[in-house]
Design a protein around this nucleic acid. Structure first.
Lengths: 232, 232
DNA sequence: CCCAAAGGTCTAATAATTATACCAAAATAA
DNA sequence: TTATTTTGGTATAATTATTAGACCTTTGGG
């Protein structure tokens, strides 16, 4: 045969840790200003040594994702929103086609996930989804809103119980690292909540086709808001 | 936040090599009886040391994927088809739902890939696709047919230029490690060729919608042949 | 002012990977 | 048959990444 096997690339443990933490920030699960667990605790949680974790934190610091403060009440803090915005804008201008790639994928993958979720969701899945809706309802900042939305989408993929969808959508959602919107919070939140509640109800009532269609609308709305965000 | 970060799992280089080679076999790109390149050459090609590669080969040998012979004209050979069949049956019976998961994903992902390929395909992409069709036409065994088909599908995903599709479909296709069919070759081959030529023409002529629909039919046909294969 | 909680530093041990040389088997050509 | 070449098999030493643990330094709050 043609023997075109690409090189095996073993990733360093610190590099994997960097990627994981970056992904949390890109997904909006780690918010600006939040403090991460103390080095000793976090290292244990993610099963790497403290030294290795510190290497990762150095990199995140040097790339401008976190600032590290010493002393009691110190630790690694996600940088302020202004700085994240700046970085997000940079990433977008570096690859303007990236967002299109994400949405052309989401628009078929997420409706499928919703349809499968309607078929396979367990009571635990429903509970988790309900909680994300509560989180969205209570959100008092665009960061919190974003976090609730992401959790909602990831919970649906998880409920779909299809690992191909789970892996790829996690990556797709994370690679869409957009600046948070500036506008008024409450109309945004109300609309987000309404659309997602409709998806939730379809999944709860096992209405496959409804779930699929409503999710498609949801992703389309998400996409239509794109131009508002990546302008200066 | 909830601080549920999953452990970082650094994979050993030999493990990555094992996975890569297994994937080639599962995809049908490495055929039964084929000899892999000599250790020294292969190690260099995939950028790991010979010692590490040998660890990988030991594992593949112990799991029954390859047999290793010494001396001139020796090397690592993919085991015979009977044995691969046995292993494939084992994998299927170990997780009967796996094939369903693969097809429920393929049936939306591959039509999307075909549609995007129709939009973005370059002359080089077309050339590559044409070659896979020739390969299918010349196939003189079910192994060779399978190899051509896999190459065709992967080439389309590559032409779609969407990394989410590429990563996940590669994994999905590889995880569908089915025993090769036993029946007559030439009707199989003729049908396979006809269906894929239709997809190719749509991509060549930039007919997005046609490409999408024809690929959907192709995957459905693939799926409909499933029951013939995983019986004894 | 002290102390607990955090990051910062150092050292030694372990494990994975690499580079290199050399040995042993087996097919093939002289 | 015999020599040669091509292959896998083995051994050793160096390097690097990762870990474990002890200890120092900073800093905010009681």
């Amino acid at each position: 045969m043609l023997w075109g096997m690409k090189p095996v690339e073993q990733q360093a443990a610190y590099g994997l840790a960097v990627d994981k933490i970056k992904q949390m920030i890109h997904l909006g699960l780690l918010l600006s200003g939040e403090r991460m667990p103390a080095e000793r605790k976090l290292a244990e949680q993610i099963s790497i040594s403290r030294v290795t974790l510190r290497e990762a934190l150095r990199i995140l610091e040097s790339e401008g994702y976190v600032t590290i403060r010493r002393g009691a009440a110190g630790g690694a803090f996600v940088v302020e929103e202004v700085q994240l915005r700046e970085m997000a804008k940079c990433r977008i201008s570096g690859d303007p086609a990236a967002a299109m790639r994400v949405f052309e994928y989401r628009i078929v993958a997420e409706p499928l996930a919703a349809k499968l979720a309607a078929i396979r969701r367990t009571p635990a899945d429903l509970k988790r989804l309900e909680n994300t809706l509560l989180e969205i309802g209570k959100a008092s900042s665009s960061g919190e809103l974003r976090r609730g939305e992401t959790t909602f989408h990831l919970s649906i993929v998880q409920a779909s119980a299809n690992r191909f969808l789970l892996n790829s959508l996690e990556e797709a959602l994370a690679s869409l690292f957009l600046p948070l919107p500036n506008g008024e919070l409450s109309p945004e939140r109300a609309k987000s909540l309404m659309l997602r509640e409709r998806v939730f109800e379809a999944i709860r009532d096992r209405l496959e086709t409804e779930a699929e269609q409503r999710m498609k609308i949801l992703v389309e709305v998400d996409q239509s808001r794109l131009p508002e965000r990546n302008v200066a």
